[in-house]
């Protein structure tokens, strides 16, 4: 996947860059509207991470450019404003998703992967990770062709883990992903433990390799083979 990160806050940009820059991904970054348009006019990308608040104009300019040139990059807006109007405006002008600062990198990754997947949905509606096959359309999971029944939360969590495979994910990030922004239940980590324990058990019961590793004191890691 080829990614363009448009973010003016240098350290944030670097962190996103490092997190996404792994095998199979090509990342590029820029920090202003002008450089973003320059890059976009020269190269094609799969996905664009776009900060709305840029020093030389707002990021909606990028969306306008993409639309005028009939480009079909997936765009994920990063905004400091949790404003419904901005969200609607962004999604109406061609963005595919909207994430509000502050966010966890794991969440960002999961969103980017999901957005990219949606864009390429017609060609590929099956996600295969080693022996695990996920039918994204029917939301079903099978291990070595044996179907396993997962609850909605377990299914979400599995997708989340696979999107962030090989990364340590903090319990905070998982909690926020599971309970959403507004449920105000982030201090409650027991559920995560229960859900993950159940998910892991179901996978192991289906003769799946033990991918979910607990990192004591901080969170979990889905080991990438």
């Amino acid at each position: 996947m080829k990614l363009l990160i448009i973010e003016d806050e240098k350290s944030l940009c670097d962190n996103i860059f490092n997190y996404f820059n792994e095998e199979g991904n090509i990342c590029e970054s820029c920090n202003s509207l002008t450089t973003a348009i320059d890059k976009l006019s020269a190269y094609k990308y799969d996905c664009i991470l776009l900060d709305i608040g840029l020093p030389d104009g707002d990021g909606f300019g990028v969306l306008d450019y993409l639309r005028e040139n009939n480009r079909n990059e997936a765009v994920l807006i990063i905004s400091a404003r949790n404003s419904l109007n901005d969200k609607i405006l962004g999604l109406n002008t061609g963005a595919d998703d909207y994430i509000t600062k502050p966010f966890h990198l794991a969440e960002l990754k999961a969103r980017v992967v999901a957005t990219y997947r949606r864009k390429t949905f017609n060609t590929n509606n099956k996600l295969i990770f080693n022996e695990i096959t996920i039918n994204l359309l029917g939301r079903t999971v099978s291990v070595n062709d044996t179907a396993i029944i997962l609850t909605r939360k377990e299914y979400d969590m599995l997708l989340y883990f696979i999107a962030n495979k090989g990364k340590v994910i903090s319990k905070n990030a998982i909690a926020e992903h599971m309970w959403g922004d507004e449920m105000d239940m982030h201090d409650n980590f027991d559920f995560i433990y229960t859900h993950i324990k159940n998910l892991r058990k179901k996978l192991l019961d289906a003769q799946c390799a033990d991918y979910i590793k607990s990192i004591y004191g901080i969170g979990y890691k889905f080991i990438a083979e």
Partner: peptide, 27 residues
């Protein structure tokens, strides 16, 4: 304006925990 620095803190931590040599106390 506070949201961006908060995002920096969160993402820095996300990057930091990728280092598996940290001990439990640091976690």
């Amino acid at each position: 304006e506070m949201m961006t620095p908060l995002a920096v803190i969160t993402t820095k931590l996300d990057t930091l925990i990728q280092d598996e040599n940290l001990n439990a106390d640091q976690y």
